[in-house]
Simulated scan of single mutants.
Amino acid sequence: MASPTVSIDNAKCVLVIGATSGIGRALALAIAELPSRPTVIAAGRRQDRLDELKAKKLETVQIDVAADLTTLKKTVDSLVAQYPDLDAVMFASGIQYQQDFTKEVDLTQVAREINVNYLAVVSLISMFLPHFLKLSADGRPSFIMPVSSGLGLMPSNYVPNYSASKAALTSFAISLRKQLAATNVKILEIIPPLVESELHDEQGTTGHLSNFWMPLDEYTERTMGGLRKGDTRIASGTAEKVLKRYQDAGLCDIYPIPV
Rank of each mutant, 00 (worst) to 15 (best):
M224C: 02
L79T: 11
E104C: 08
S197V: 06
M1D: 14
Q96W: 12
L119D: 09
F143D: 00
D248P: 03
A168Q: 05
E240C: 03
T70M: 03
A32H: 11
A81T: 13
L251Q: 13
I95E: 05
A181V: 08
S142Y: 00
I31N: 09
D138C: 04
G152C: 02
P155K: 00
L153D: 14
A120G: 08
L107W: 15
K241W: 08
L180Q: 01
R233K: 12
L53M: 02
G230H: 01
Y97T: 09
P84C: 05
I191M: 05
E113Y: 05
D85R: 15
D9W: 08
S7R: 02
K73E: 14
L133G: 02
S149G: 10
L50E: 01
V185I: 00
E240M: 07
S78W: 15
Q47K: 14
L251K: 14
R233L: 09
E198C: 05
A81G: 09
P146C: 04
V259H: 14
S36M: 10
M1R: 15
A2K: 09
S165Q: 07
S136Q: 00
G94T: 11
R45H: 00
L107S: 13
M127C: 04
G204S: 09
D51Q: 10
V105N: 08
T220R: 13
I17M: 08
R140N: 04
S149K: 12
S36L: 10
G204C: 08
Q179C: 04
A32W: 07
D48W: 07
V195L: 04
L243M: 11
M90A: 14
N211P: 06
G207Y: 06
V242P: 05
T183C: 00
G226K: 01
I95L: 11
L27C: 10
K57F: 09
R49A: 11
D100R: 13
L180H: 01
G152Y: 03
R233N: 07
E198N: 12
